[in-house]
């Protein structure tokens, strides 16, 4: 495996981010952006205490974000643990909403490959449309890039028709150079999406990390013509930040990536904040979380 290491200018990345994030999106453009954000959300529940009831409730919310507001899109997908896939699939029958399942011993990835592949096959058989795998960070940091690449390729094969999102867990990769390298390896090995984090490690998706991953996607597209998707996850709970990310995609990858086929937000509380902002825009009154579904 070719492991060309891009040296990332960390200060430059920070500066670029702060320039992109200073854009002000207002009025009609803001409402449009907020709707786009909603349609890109992977509504997520990944807790040890998840119950069928909670998953069903979340599925209902995915399809009915806030029925008082007309013309709202639905979210792109529901993201759950493997044992909840069948329940989510059934609850979402008749909608366009995908079911994404984390797999490969999420969030640590610390089981043998054989078990990971079985897990992936199981969630696909249960009906998962998308699989979110984690890479073996220990191996990656130990320099075993071929192992990481082979593992991703095997999981991709096990996925069959299901889309594969590869979680780099950038909070454990230490440097931006590593983020870039892991992105390159994941894309070459068959990832349909690259994803920042599990949400279980802090820091999760930070803006410079997302920028570097977007640039990796751009370079890969220029080289091969293949469009890889991007999913920042973890810690994105405010509408303002999500709009800033839209600006970042538009400026780095262009209009083609501004849809749910190629960009997702992994989030649980973002949807409510976006809904509160949309309602604020249409009524002029600041909103309270009391009047939105709890999740």
């Amino acid at each position: 495996m070719e492991t060309f290491i891009h040296r990332i200018d960390q200060v430059g990345a920070q500066e670029r981010v702060s320039r992109l994030f200073s854009r002000s999106i207002k009025k009609e453009s803001k409402i449009e952006a907020l709707h786009t954000v909603l349609s890109m959300i992977d509504l997520t529940t990944l807790e040890g205490k998840d119950s069928p009831g909670k998953v069903k409730q979340l599925c209902y919310k995915a399809a009915h974000l806030h029925d008082q507001l007309p013309n709202l899109p639905t979210v792109a997908a529901i993201c759950v643990y493997p044992t909840m896939v069948a329940i989510a699939k059934k609850a979402l029958e008749g909608t366009d909403i995908n079911v994404a399942s984390v797999a490969t011993a999420f969030p640590s990835g610390m089981t043998p490959l054989e078990y990971k592949l079985n897990e992936v096959k199981m969630v696909v058989a249960e009906g998962a449309d998308e699989v979110d795998m984690v890479i073996s960070r220990g191996k990656f940091l130990g320099g075993e890039y071929n192992y990481v690449a082979d593992e991703i390729a095997s999981v991709k094969e096990a996925c069959g028709k299901a889309h594969l999102k590869v979680i780099l867990e950038t909070g454990e990769l230490v440097t931006l150079d590593n983020v870039r390298l892991a992105s390159d390896i994941a894309m070459k090995s068959g990832a349909d999406f690259i994803k920042t984090s599990t949400g279980k490690v802090s820091p999760a998706a930070t803006p410079p990390v997302v920028l570097i991953m977007l640039e990796a996607i751009r370079d890969y597209f220029k080289k091969t013509g293949k469009k890889i998707g991007m999913k920042p996850a973890g810690g994105i709970s405010k509408a303002k930040l999500s709009i800033q990310y839209l600006v970042m995609i538009k400026e780095t990858l262009g209009q083609d990536w501004l849809n749910a086929d190629l960009f997702r937000f992994g989030a649980s509380s973002l949807a409510n904040d976006v809904l509160m902002q949309i309602l604020k825009q249409s009524t002029g009154v600041y909103q309270s979380a009391n009047y939105f579904s709890m999740d």
Binding site: G284, V285, Y286, S288
Partner: peptide
Amino acid sequence: EQFSSHMD
């Protein structure tokens, strides 16, 4: 206006 209308 905002002092009196804020929903929270």
